[in-house]
Amino acid sequence: MATGGRRGAAAAPLLVAVAALLLGAAGHLYPGEVCPGMDIRNNLTRLHELENCSVIEGHLQILLMFKTRPEDFRDLSFPKLIMITDYLLLFRVYGLESLKDLFPNLTVIRGSRLFFNYALVIFEMVHLKELGLYNLMNITRGSVRIEKNNELCYLATIDWSRILDSVEDNYIVLNKDDNEECGDICPGTAKGKTNCPATVINGQFVERCWTHSHCQKVCPTICKSHGCTAEGLCCHSECLGNCSQPDDPTKCVACRNFYLDGRCVETCPPPYYHFQDWRCVNFSFCQDLHHKCKNSRRQGCHQYVIHNNKCIPECPSGYTMNSSNLLCTPCLGPCPKVCHLLEGEKTIDSVTSAQELRGCTVINGSLIINIRGGNNLAAELEANLGLIEEISGYLKIRRSYALVSLSFFRKLRLIRGETLEIGNYSFYALDNQNLRQLWDWSKHNLTITQGKLFFHYNPKLCLSEIHKMEEVSGTKGRQERNDIALKTNGDQASCENELLKFSYIRTSFDKI
């Protein structure tokens, strides 16, 4: 039985969820670079991206490699990797027998973001014989899940209580170790020597080791999670996991709180800001991140802002960003909400898709409305799209047979046209069989910064309504002859009103 693990408890099935942008060198404390989270699957090609990484700022997932063999891993080693800020997950990587050479110096898994409450997941690794993470000293947050690894031993010899604050939620089941077939031998045991430290858990006094050649490092209890030197002297209180010299914040392997210019500090002093819960960055760093993602459509890219001495992905609820200094300031009234469309555009074809934009005031991208039916549609669209004030790209209304009016965009005031449909149009209306009105132009103002209007096959939309939009939106004169079809717009509506004058002759039985 794995020490510190839980057996036999019912657990939810383990679901495996399925960018080499360097964020800056980590400095003297770390020998390499800070790398983003990685999802490495199918083959070993991307694994080489770990070569210079000291910190993975995010998670590391290595999974679904069915053609790899043990010899493929023999020359692979990433000794610079010290810390993973989120979680480490391995799933069905064939041929991998140990992690001792792959990650010989991995010391800390912070667990800032977890995989279903777990910071370390080893699942269905069919050839893994031992973990071998002999320098792993601290899992700051989260638990361990090690399950269905039929060859995995050296679990009962690990004292997880020396690595985690609590072992109650560890789930370590259905491994070879369960069948008591392992016969784990710690260093020196074969020669009758006791080389590794022994600890007591559940009444068992057991030597602690990761492999037959690597003991588990056990520091004096007084050192807590700070770690200790090879001689057993406690590291500085700002260290986490390990250090090369005692009581020196510049000799830590990793930091308990924050890293700044080669030393570990309790908090980031001005003019620095907390970033990702582990390091200090200056304003320029946060500003660069903001600008890199301002026009990016890459998933996970955030326009970072500053709030409460932190550089964070977005302002919290009730705050909006001051564009001059990136500071989050309290909103006066309802907060603006910028919604970034991942692929640059979004099609609204149902109430469900409209709900995804609920509360958005600025759309960074283009909207395509293609709704053919739905219950209580006008009210639903207004509830979900009615706060949109600005669209950076274009607005396209296409084959939306259920629409009679666009009044559900009740606050839309600006279409920038930074991206144009077919390279020309910022407003595009095609084949809307029941569209009769755009907006009530006596109450609604709309500016279209650039781009043209396109109207074709809107049989109940009168040309007068379209011409009014040209005047109000500032697009009059931009359109070419064929942009607004004269014969297919309003051709099934009563669009022309003329005053009919009647004269009559009164007659009676005795007068003409």
Rank of each mutant, 00 (worst) to 15 (best):
P79T: 08
D75V: 13
F91Y: 14
F258E: 02
E124Q: 04
V265F: 03
D184H: 06
G192F: 08
C209V: 01
P197R: 15
R46L: 03
P316S: 06
L128A: 03
Q61Y: 03
V265A: 09
S244F: 15
Q276N: 03
C335F: 03
G203K: 13
P249V: 03
F115K: 03
L29W: 08
R74V: 02
C335H: 08
Q276T: 13
I312R: 08
E151A: 08
P316N: 04
C186S: 03
Q276W: 03
R263F: 02
L152G: 01
K310R: 07
V108C: 04
I172P: 03
T157H: 09
R256E: 07
E207A: 05
Y273W: 12
I306T: 03
L50S: 01
Y304N: 02
V265N: 01
G183T: 08
I306Q: 01
C53D: 00
H214N: 14
C196V: 12
C215V: 08
V55I: 14
S323P: 14
T189I: 11
L50C: 03
F283R: 12
P79Q: 10
S213W: 04
K251L: 10
N282L: 05
L76K: 09
R145G: 02
H59G: 11
S244Y: 04
C255N: 01
G318R: 05
G58F: 00
K100L: 10
L136Y: 01
S324I: 01
Q303M: 14
H290R: 09
S317T: 13
T107H: 13
T85D: 02
D277W: 06
M137L: 08
C243Q: 01
T194I: 15
A119K: 00
G333N: 06
P104L: 01
T189S: 08
L133P: 01
L120N: 00
P31N: 15
N322K: 06
M38K: 07
H307Q: 05
C255Q: 00
L96K: 01
L326F: 06
S244T: 04
N242Y: 11
D247R: 10
N295S: 09
Y273S: 05
D248G: 02
N282T: 13
F123S: 12
D247M: 03
K294W: 10
C235K: 03
F78Q: 02
N117G: 10
L76F: 12
I40W: 01
D178G: 12
C234V: 00
I201E: 12
S284F: 04
C186P: 00
I185L: 11
S323N: 02
L136H: 01
D72V: 15
Q245W: 03
S54G: 00
R46P: 04
T68S: 12
A119L: 00
R141A: 03
V206S: 13
V93I: 07
N175A: 14
C255P: 00
V305L: 07
L233P: 06
C243F: 01
V253A: 13
P334Q: 12
F116R: 08
R298E: 07
E238V: 04
D75H: 06
P197E: 06
C182Q: 05
C331E: 02
F275H: 12
S323F: 14
A119N: 02
N150C: 08
E151V: 10
I56C: 01
F103P: 00
N170D: 12
G203A: 14
T221A: 13
G111W: 00
P330R: 14
L44W: 10
H59E: 13
Y134L: 09
L332N: 03
Y171A: 13
R110D: 00
G58L: 00
N282Q: 10
C182K: 09
R92F: 11
S112Y: 08
C219H: 04
C311V: 06
F66N: 02
Y30V: 08
T199R: 06
S237D: 13
L96I: 12
L99T: 07
C235G: 00
C243Y: 00
P269G: 03
M321Y: 11
E147G: 06
L76T: 03
Y319V: 02
L50V: 06
P269W: 07
E151K: 12
L64W: 01
D184R: 12
D247F: 09
G183S: 04
F66R: 01
P269H: 11
L240N: 10
D165Q: 09
N149M: 00
P269E: 01
V265Y: 02
L76C: 15
G241A: 04
I122Y: 00
P249C: 04
N309V: 06
Y304F: 13
L174K: 06
D261N: 03
K193Q: 03
I172F: 03
P197Q: 14
D75P: 04
G241T: 07
L120A: 04
R141F: 03
F116W: 14
C239P: 00
D86V: 00
M321H: 05
R41A: 07
N195F: 04
N105G: 04
H59Q: 09
Q61I: 14
S77M: 09
L44E: 07
P197W: 05
Y134H: 01
N175M: 05
D261A: 12
R69K: 05
E97I: 11
I172L: 06
R263W: 03
G241E: 02
N325T: 06
P70V: 14
L29N: 10
C268T: 00
C35S: 00
R92L: 07
Y259A: 04
C239F: 00
A254T: 06
G188C: 13
F103R: 02
F275D: 01
T199N: 06
L152P: 00
L155A: 12
P330T: 10
Q216M: 11
T250E: 10
Y319L: 03
E33I: 09
I185R: 14
Y134S: 09
D101P: 12
G188Q: 14
L99K: 00
P220T: 13
L131G: 01
P330L: 10
D101K: 03
D101N: 08
G37D: 11
L90S: 02
I84P: 00
P197L: 07
N117K: 06
P70F: 08
C209K: 10
V144A: 09
I163F: 09
T329R: 12
C255R: 00
T229Y: 02
E71N: 14
F205A: 02
R162Y: 05
A198D: 03
L81T: 04
I62G: 00
N117S: 09
G300W: 07
N179S: 05
G132P: 00
L89P: 00
